[in-house]
């Protein structure tokens, strides 16, 4: 598995027009999806007054900061400063971006310029992300090699989070019946509880 890519969210959890906070190691990210469905992962910080862009709002193909409405295009470049509608924003006003791609229903992020592809997981799709109050390496050890959960074939991706927690992204094999998926939801909750109690799955 290519280690340059980190799973930060499930595609289904970032609807068109949404911006959410996410993490790449200790870096705070905003992950947002434009009206036409384009995904982006940026530094979670407006260059103007340092406000978190994950509190911002999406209109069309632009993300705006909630503080003063500064509007950024897909390249991270500031396109509008509402306090000065006639002003063309200087090129220096730009939000640093990360490499981002979607596969298997997962939003993957890597440092800008990453040229590899994330791991290919044919036949699986993102089902549920949960935050686990336990260390990533511990959780990764506990779920290693576990390909079944709640009667479904699954792939589990562990993402380190700041503060010593981790994210657990569960992917499920295509073709499971609704009842199986319901059982999987319960199994994920039970797994989380076990992991947080430090008991191997």
């Amino acid at each position: 598995m290519s280690s340059n890519w980190t799973p930060v969210a499930l595609s289904q959890d970032v609807l068109p027009g949404m911006a959410i906070p996410a993490h790449l190691q200790d870096q705070d990210l905003v992950v947002w999806r434009s009206a036409t469905g384009r995904i982006a992962a940026w530094h979670d910080r407006c260059p103007h007054r340092g406000m978190r862009l994950s509190h911002g709002f999406v209109r069309g193909e632009f993300l705006s900061c909630i503080y003063h409405g500064w509007r950024y295009g897909e390249d991270g470049q500031c396109r509008k400063i509402p306090a000065h509608p006639e002003l063309a924003p200087p090129a220096a006003i730009k939000v640093p971006r990360f490499a981002v791609c979607e596969s298997a229903g997962v939003v993957w992020v890597a440092p800008e310029g990453e040229t590899s592809e994330p791991v290919d997981l044919p036949g699986f799709r993102g089902f549920r992300s949960v935050a686990v109050n336990a260390a990533a390496d511990q959780v990764a050890r506990d779920v290693a090699g576990q390909g079944h959960l709640g009667g479904c074939d699954v792939v589990m991706l562990v993402q380190p989070l700041p503060g010593g927690d981790c994210g657990l992204h569960v992917l499920v094999a295509d073709g499971c019946a609704d009842a199986q998926l319901d059982a999987l939801s319960h199994a994920i909750e039970a797994l989380r509880r076990r992991l947080e109690q430090g008991v191997a799955a």
């Binding site: 705070d28 340092g50 406000m51 509190h55 909630i66 306090a83």
Partner: peptide, 24 residues
């Protein structure tokens, strides 16, 4: 308050460079 508790860094930068002001 919902703004103030979500600015990075928490401290107010006094030197230019960390934040970009405009005429307003």
């Amino acid at each position: 308050r919902s703004i103030l508790e979500n600015q990075l860094p928490a401290l107010l930068p006094l030197d230019p460079g960390r934040e970009i002001p405009t005429r307003a």
